[in-house]
Design a protein around this nucleic acid. Structure first.
Lengths: 212, 212, 212, 212
DNA sequence: TATGAATGAGAATTCATTCAT
DNA sequence: GATGAATGAATTCTCATTCAT
C-alpha cells in the first residue's frame, strides 16, 4: 500500500503490509503467521507483540483501511470531485470521478479483496465498512445529487440512491470484468470504454421515447 | 439447494449439500470435514470415499453449480426471458429478467458466496466460471441485444457489452446492498424500487439534452 | 493407579495414567502433552480426542479421583473401619484406620500431590474436593464419634471436628515427614511409631492432672 | 512480606516482593516474568540483571525465606516462647506458641504456598527446607521437651518427635481447614476453638483409663 | 544500570486424512 | 461400502531471555 504515513512502529507497519500481501494472495485462513513474519522480515513472535491474536492483524488492516478510506479517500476523493463541479458538466464530473475511483480501486485492490471476502462472512466487518465507508459516501453523494438536480443536470424524478447504485454498479462490474477476466474483456483502450460506460449511465440503454 | 436431481449417490448428494451449507457459513478453510460429516449425517471417513481430498468437495460443488447453471439456469433462465420478447416492450422484458435473476441469486446465494470467495483467489475457478457461465450468458445477451436494437428498443450506438454490464451492475449492487445491509437499504417495497432501477437502466440519470 | 475399572476407553485410560505420572513428577504446567502422549503410547493428537484442552486432563484425573474416593475410598475405607467397631476398643480401631489410610495415601500419593498443588491455587478444586471427599468423610466421622462417645471410649466434652482434626493432623504430618524426608525421620519400624502416634492421639502429651 | 530489611538493592527487593505475589497467586510456572516486572514497576530486562534465569527468582525467595526463617523466625519465634517457660504451665505455653505460629503462618502464607508447591516437586528444596527450618526447629523443640518432661508437665514415656508432630499436625490441619474452606469450618471464635485444640493436644481424645 | 523491543524455541491445539474393523 | 478412532503435520501462540540503546 502506498499511503501509510499513519506513523505506526516500523515493524508493525511492515507486518501489516506483509499481511495484506499474504491475505490477498491466499485469504485470511490460508495465510500463516509464519509466512507473514518471513515476508515482513521479522520473527514470528514479533507479530504477536503487536497483534495479540492472528485475527487482530485483520482488524489492523481494516482499521488502517478505514482510516485511509474514512477520511482521505472518501472526503478527498469523492468530495473533491463531486463537490467542486461549478463549471463542469455531468459528463466531465462523472469521467473524473470514475477515473479516480478506478485508479483507487486498483491501488487498493489487495485490501479490497480481503475486505470483500471477510465481509461475506462476518457481520461486524460489514457493519464497520458501512459505518466508515458506505454511509459517508452516501452522504456526500446526496449533496452532489442535490446540486446536480438543482443545476438541471440530473433528472429530478429519480431516487438519489438508485442513481448512486447505477454509477457504482457500472464501475463495479467494469472493474470486476477487468480484474477477473483481464485478457477477455480488456479489449479497447480504456478511455473509449469509459465513455461508453458514462454514456449509458447518463442516457440509459433505451431508445428515448418522444414524450419522455 | 433445490434442483439437484443429478442423480448422485444419496450420501454424496447429502455431503455436497452439507458442504454448501458449511462453506457458505464459514468459508472453505474455516469449514471442517468433521462438521460437514455431522450435518450430512455420515461418518467423516465417508466423505473421503466420495472426495479424495477436501478441495474436491469444493470442486464437486462447482461442477454441480456449473452443470446447473451452465445450461438450465442460463439457457432456460436467461434464454427463456431474453429470447421470447415478441410482443413485450423493453421495460417488461427487463422487469421479468431482473425479477428472475433476483430470485435465482437469492436461492443460490450460499453457492454464489462460495464461488465469489474462491474465484477471488483462484484463477482456475474464474476460468471455469467464465467458460460455463459468463461466456454463455454473453452469447445469449448478444442475440437479445441485436433483436432489441432491430426492434428499435435499444439504442444502436452503444456497445452490447456495456449494455449488459449496466444491467448486471445495477442488479448486482441492488443485491449487494440488500444482502449486506438488509436493515439499512431495504426501505420501500421491492417492486417500486425495481421500477426505479429499470427506469435508470433505460433512461440513465441525466436530464436528456434536446438534441440527443 | 490401581483401581481403575471405570471402564473408560483403553487409550483414554492410558492417557490418564500417563498424565498422573507426568503431572506428579513435574506439576501440571511443566508437564507437556507431548510427553504424556509419549508415555501413554499414543499420538499427541489422540489426547485431544479425549480431552478438549490440557486442563481437561486434570479435570479427568480429579473426576476419577473423586469417583474413586467419593464412594469406595471414603465409604468403604473409612466406613468399613469406623462403623464396624462393635467389639473393638479405640486403640484397635485407630490402628486399623490409620494403617488403612497410610496405605491408601501411599498408593494414591501421585494423585494426591497433584490435587494438593492444584487446590492451593484453584478455588474450584478445593470446592470439588470438599464436596466429594472432606464433607463425606466428616459425615461418617461424626457417626463414629457419636458411637464411641456413647460407648464411653471417646471423651464427650470435646468437639467431634477437633477430634477428627487431631487424628488426621497426626496422620498427615506422619506421612509428610516420611515422604518429604524419608531418610531423616524413617528410623524405627513403622509399627512401633504408629503406636506412639496412637498413644498421643488417645491420651495427649500432657501428664494428666489428678483431678481431670 | 514484612521483614525484608536484608538491605538488598531496592529494585531487587521489589522484584522479589512482586514475585512472591505472583508466584503465590498462580504458581511458579504460570507466573510470567512480564507480570512480575509490571508489578515490581521495573522493566522486564531488569529482572535478568538481578536473576540470571527465572528459577533464580524462586531461589532468591527461598534464600530470603530461609534467612528470615532460619534464624529470626525459628529461634526468636520458637525459641522465645518454648525456651522461656519458667513460670508458665503447659497450656499457657502451648497457647502462646500456637497463636504465634498461626499468626506467622498467616503473614507468610503466600511464601509458604510457594514453598510447599516447590517442595512437592524438588528434592533440593525439601533439603534446604529441612536444613534451615525443620532441623533447627526440632533441635529447639527437643530442649523444650526435655525441660517440660523434667518439670513433670509432659509425659516422659512419649517420643519427643511424636509430641512435636502432634502439636504441629494439629496446628497444620487447623490452618488448612481455615485457609482452604474458610466459610465452611470457620464457625466459632478462634480462641474457643484454640482451647479445644490445646485440650486435645494435651489430653488426647480418649476417655482416660483408671489405671493410666 | 536500566530499558523494552525483538527473538525463537517450545507448547497446545486443530484437522484433513488413513485404515482396521 | 461405511465407520470413526487414531494419527501427526502444520499452525497459532507464549514467554524466558537477549541485547542495542
Amino acid at each position: 500500500m502506498d499511503l501509510k504515513a499513519l506513523n505506526l512502529p516500523d515493524k508493525k507497519q511492515r507486518i501489516l503490509e506483509a499481511a495484506i500481501d499474504v491475505f490477498s494472495e491466499k485469504g485470511f485462513s490460508r495465510a500463516t503467521t509464519s509466512e507473514i513474519a518471513k515476508r515482513a522480515g521479522v520473527a514470528e513472535g514479533t507479530i504477536f507483540r503487536y497483534f495479540k491474536i492472528k485475527k487482530d492483524i485483520l482488524r489492523g488492516i481494516l482499521i488502517q483501511m478505514i482510516s485511509l478510506a474514512g477520511e482521505p479517500v472518501i472526503i478527498e476523493g469523492v468530495g473533491k470531485i463531486l463537490l467542486n463541479t461549478e463549471n463542469k458538466n455531468l459528463r466531465e464530473v462523472l469521467k473524473s470521478f470514475i477515473k479516480d475511483r478506478l485508479q483507487l480501486i486498483e491501488s487498493l485492490y489487495p485490501m479490497i479483496k480481503i475486505i470483500i471476502t471477510e465481509a461475506l462472512y462476518h457481520e461486524d466487518i460489514r457493519e464497520a465498512f458501512f459505518e466508515n465507508v458506505t454511509s459517508k459516501g452516501v452522504e456526500i453523494f446526496n449533496i452532489f445529487h442535490n446540486q446536480m438536480v438543482e443545476r438541471g443536470l440530473i433528472r429530478k424524478n429519480v431516487d438519489a440512491l438508485a442513481v448512486a447504485r447505477s454509477i457504482m454498479g457500472n464501475i463495479f462490474l467494469f472493474v470486476v470484468t477487468r480484474q477477473f477476466f483481464p485478457e477477455k474483456f480488456n479489449r479497447k483502450n480504456t478511455d473509449e470504454e469509459l465513455d461508453a460506460v458514462i454514456n449509458i449511465i447518463m442516457y440509459g440503454i433505451a431508445v428515448p421515447e418522444i414524450s419522455k
